[in-house]
Amino acid sequence: MNRAPGVEDPLQFALALGLGCDRGTPAATIYQAISEALAVCGGQPSDVRAVGSIDLKADEAGLLQVAREQAWYIHFYPAADLAAVDVPNPSETVRRYTGSPSVSEAAALLVAGADKADLIVEKHKLRGPDGRNATISIARIYP
């Protein structure tokens, strides 16, 4: 977990989620991945103030269901915008499929305001019982 110097409690700040998933990933798998990632940093869904993903997922049923049920607006970014963000865990596999070396980490930083955010959960991955993958990254948003 990356923390700013002198900051012990990440939840004195709002959280931003970056979401990535396989095509056809059910909402249950995405919910589980989010829940696990939030548990890593001691967060709750109510701490989430911003959510981002890649524009390729703008029609992803499971992702849209989670956002609707949580009353979260998802900002969808083009691959070029995500690719311009420096992330700790780029992936050539992700680049091959999306055009960006990062979806979840880059989206979390972009939607949080990259100049005033840091990642506190890097690429939390879950392969659901359905065989589909979800990846969640969480950035802390500074005031």
Rank of each mutant, 00 (worst) to 15 (best):
P129M: 02
D59R: 11
A50W: 01
R23W: 11
V121C: 08
W72R: 05
R3T: 10
T29E: 07
V121N: 07
V94T: 14
Q44K: 15
R3H: 14
T25H: 06
I34T: 10
G52V: 06
A4E: 13
A114E: 14
E122K: 14
K125Y: 00
A27C: 08
P45H: 07
A114Q: 14
Q12T: 14
L82K: 10
T93D: 03
V94A: 03
R140H: 00
R95H: 10
A114W: 01
P143S: 08
V40E: 12
K123W: 05
R132W: 03
R132Q: 15
A39M: 06
V66A: 12
R49P: 06
D55E: 15
G131F: 07
F13V: 00
A80H: 11
E122D: 10
M1T: 01
V85H: 08
V48T: 01
E36M: 10
I141Q: 11
A108S: 10
V48R: 03
A80T: 14
S53K: 05
P90A: 12
E69Y: 05
K116S: 14
L38F: 01
S104N: 03
L126V: 14
D118K: 02
A139T: 03
G52I: 05
P5L: 10
A108N: 03
D118L: 15
K125E: 15
G52Y: 01
D115P: 02
E105T: 03
L15A: 06
G52F: 07
Q32W: 02
R140D: 00
A107V: 04
L109N: 06
G6Y: 02
Q65A: 13
K125V: 13
E122F: 00
I136E: 06
L17H: 04
L109W: 11
S137F: 06
K125T: 11
K125H: 08
T98W: 12
G42I: 02
A4G: 01
E122H: 13
L15V: 00
R127I: 15
I74G: 11
D22G: 13
G24Q: 12
A37M: 10
G24C: 06
C41E: 01
I30D: 11
N133V: 15
R132N: 08
V66Y: 09
G52W: 01
L56I: 13
S46P: 00
G24N: 13
L64E: 07
V103D: 09
P90R: 12
I120T: 00
L110D: 05
L110K: 13
Q32M: 08
I136N: 04
I54D: 07
K123N: 15
Q44E: 14
L11V: 04
V94G: 09
A4M: 13
G43R: 01
R49W: 04
V111M: 02
S102N: 08
T93F: 08
P101K: 13
E92G: 11
D47Y: 05
L11H: 05
G113R: 06
I138T: 01
G113N: 05
A58H: 08
K123H: 09
V40I: 13
P10E: 07
T29V: 15
N89D: 15
P45Q: 12
T135H: 06
D130N: 11
G42A: 07
E92I: 13
D130I: 12
A139G: 11
I120P: 02
A4D: 05
G99R: 08
G18M: 05
K57A: 04
Q65P: 00
G18H: 09
A106V: 08
